[in-house]
């Protein structure tokens, strides 16, 4: 799953060093538009629906947060 998420992140920012970052937003690897785009990609790739209330910066801060969000919505 981690590799797939990295792959999706690279679509949004092909030059971004996501593996070294612990805060994608603070490091300006993602902006608010990217988060919306990422939600669409995750929903399509993992066949999930991410509730609007979960679309908050802290759920997209780093790879672990994103994976937690996916797993939560797979249940």
């Amino acid at each position: 799953m981690k590799e797939k998420v990295y792959e999706l992140l690279s679509i949004l920012n092909c030059d971004g060093d996501f593996e070294s970052s612990t805060d994608f937003l603070a490091d300006e690897l993602l902006d608010s538009f990217n988060v919306i785009e990422l939600v669409s990609l995750l929903e399509s790739e993992f066949e999930i629906k991410i509730p609007g209330m979960d679309i908050v910066p802290e759920n997209f801060a780093n790879i672990d947060d994103i994976i937690k969000l996916i797993e939560k919505n797979q249940k």
Partner: peptide
């Protein structure tokens, strides 16, 4: 661009 196509689709 990939970004603009995705913005257009998502929004």
């Amino acid at each position: 661009s990939a970004r603009n196509r995705m913005i257009k689709k998502s929004m």
